[in-house]
């Protein structure tokens, strides 16, 4: 069943559909992919899916894009990867453009400004809540705690480039692990 050929258009549309049904980020996509692609279409099996999500979380970029790329690649190679990924991105671009254009026209009304003041408070709370699992994964001991502290200060007070900080932290961790003999 997995051998069956999938058209590029079908890949694009399927992932566009999954993207439109996803509210609140990449993790929310997992059950949708499971239902649509594992149970209904049999494009991948449960084991593949878990492996894909494991990889998606440790490769750069948006998790949803990584998962779509992997599944597209599995079905149709590189062009499948492109079709699936564009499928995930296309609805976002269209919906956000419409919403952003609309908002920029109504932003000057007092009530809209006030609604957004309330939204900013709620969003800060939501993000802090979403940070909990990331913290659990990221801050695992004294060393990572120290990295956290230094990075926070360097970024917040000294405005050091976040890209540079990511590279430095990854390199520092590798060097420390090597010195401890944890590698090899």
């Amino acid at each position: 069943m997995l051998k069956q050929k999938t058209s590029l258009f079908e890949l694009f549309i399927t992932f566009a559909k999954i993207s439109v049904m996803t509210f609140g980020g990449g993790y929310a996509m997992l059950p949708l992919i499971e239902r649509e692609l594992v149970a209904k279409k049999h494009w991948i099996d449960q084991k593949d899916l878990l492996e894909f999500f494991a990889v998606s979380q440790i490769t750069p970029g948006v998790i949803a894009v990584n998962a779509a790329s992997l599944i597209g690649q599995r079905r149709r190679g590189i062009i499948g990867l492109v079709a699936a990924t564009l499928g995930v991105a296309a609805p976002s671009v269209i919906i956000i453009t419409i919403v952003a254009a609309f908002l920029s026209n109504i932003m000057q009304f007092e009530i809209v400004g006030n609604i957004f003041a309330a939204l900013r408070i709620a969003v800060a709370a939501l993000i802090i809540n979403a940070l909990f699992p990331l913290f659990k994964k990221g801050i695992t001991g004294i060393f990572t705690g120290l990295l956290f502290l230094i990075t926070f200060i360097a970024f917040y007070f000294f405005k050091i480039s976040p890209i540079l900080l990511v590279i430095l932290c990854a390199a520092a961790t590798l060097i420390v692990a090597k010195a401890k003999g944890a590698l090899k």
Binding site: L134, G145, I150, V166, T173, L174
Partner: peptide, 23 residues
């Protein structure tokens, strides 16, 4: 990859925290 990623995630936590703090 796993070790480098561990350090990078600690860094990303700090970056997001700083942005949220400002927010």
């Amino acid at each position: 990859a796993a070790v480098a990623f561990g350090g990078a995630i600690a860094c990303v936590c700090a970056l997001i925290s700083a942005a949220v703090f400002d927010m």
